[in-house]
Design a protein around this nucleic acid. Structure first.
Lengths: 237, 237
DNA sequence: ATTAAATTTGACCAAGTGGTCAGGTTTTGA
DNA sequence: TCAAAACCTGACCACTTGGTCAAATTTAAT
């Protein structure tokens, strides 16, 4: 099935017109390829929502097209197959995940860096819950499209951050901890507020989570993590 | 669509033959209704696996039937529609979730009770990862079949356990904490080892998680939670 | 033994599904 | 101005899907 993919690719394989060409300011207004850029963005946003709420198999190209305000054939014109579109959505999302870890450096203060990282992750859960849901769905289904990313990029990144934790521990700044389990707990806890939003909302008696809820969630997680590593945490910080 | 469900229900609406009739010992060997009990169990187990790994829409009744070793029409004979089968699978799972919370009572020791609860949840993630995945999928997709459960049973249970936490705090045994966020973190962290098993495995460089991994995960979570509540935690406990 | 109830199943169907394509329109660059 | 490239899209297709059904077989109870 997936080997019958690139059939009409002669038409679609345009120079790719990567966004960051020259001037970012006029990236979606005019100029050559601006239609491509705009429509791809429309489709990707629609696809993220449909994949997040319906799952991979539940997402239909027709539903994505409708949400993007384009005919279905147009979706296939830009992305070829549903699978390729899904891959493109995932690609977008993976970048988000890797970004925030920059805060954790050997030179930074453990308590501040960890707290900032957790708060940034919670902010991401609030601002991009759909991205988180697509990713969660992908993991649950066995990471068929993401296995290489997990085993290479993500694993290496965690390894490098493990060195930071070890350095902090060696300097007596934190207590030793298994980095994989620490990151797992932080990711699980923060992403929970995107993926299980409806459950948390039900428990809090709200239809939607409020800004305050995300803040309190972040503070709870920060408190557990800092204390768990032997650091001080003052609620009013 | 869902209103065209119970058409041939005259045939299927047998006295239901609930399992726990009289003698649990011979529940699946012989006697009237034993075929019904056996086949329903076969189908439910197969459905849990297919729903977990393929999502609701991705699960086909044909795949479920094949995994159960029965013809597809037989699946519809016992459960009517795919949606009803999904509901039955969820029903099974929800019971699991509510069970373990019994450990948290006002009379029990906070550190022991919480540690036991976390370890029990991790054990569940290890023993029933498919159930956890089906549940996670259901939450991500907006809890369409589970909203009442969340707003009633689960919310009330959390409210009653919140009283336990308050009592502990009032007695000076733990520091005050928002119960919803505490449970959210514990559930997120423990269920992560079922739902994101493949990610944790990739980070640890294993194909499958080992018993040791689950134990270390549990200890990490216990450590963060106990310390976060101002309780002592000794690694060698 | 007899009969009613329960179970089994191949064959079938209407409604989608991802994907294709030909022929059109618009945009772009020279 | 004009041709080439990019873009658009209604109509179409092969295949899958959940669900149905009638006829046959097995089980249960008297």
């Amino acid at each position: 099935m997936s080997d019958t993919v690139a059939k009409g690719s002669e038409i679609k394989d345009v120079p790719a017109k990567e966004t960051g060409d020259k001037d970012e300011a006029l990236k979606d207004d005019s100029g050559p390829g601006h239609i491509r850029v705009r429509n791809r963005a429309l489709i990707l946003a629609a696809a993220e929502e449909v994949f997040a709420t319906q799952g991979y198999r539940g997402a239909t190209t027709a539903a994505i097209a409708k949400k993007a305000g384009l005919p279905k054939a147009n979706v296939h014109y830009y992305f070829g197959t549903k699978e390729a579109l899904y891959a493109a959505v995932l690609e977008d999302i993976l970048g988000l995940w890797l970004g925030e870890l920059d805060r954790l450096t050997e030179a930074s203060d453990p308590a501040t860096a960890l707290a900032d990282y957790i708060r940034a992750k919670i902010r991401l859960s609030r601002e991009r819950p759909l991205a988180s849901k697509v990713y969660a769905n992908e993991m649950i289904r066995g990471a068929r499209h993401t296995r290489d990313f997990l085993k290479n990029e993500l694993r290496n990144l965690v390894k490098s951050k493990a060195k930071v934790l070890e350095a902090w521990a060696a300097a007596g700044k934190i207590e030793p901890v298994d980095p994989v389990h620490l990151f797992s707990v932080v990711w699980a806890a923060t992403q929970h507020y995107a993926d299980f939003e409806v459950q948390v909302g039900a428990l809090l008696g709200r239809r939607q989570l409020a800004a305050k809820d995300y803040d309190e969630a972040a503070e709870t997680i920060v408190r557990l993590v800092l204390r768990g590593l032997g650091l001080k945490y003052r609620p009013g910080e």
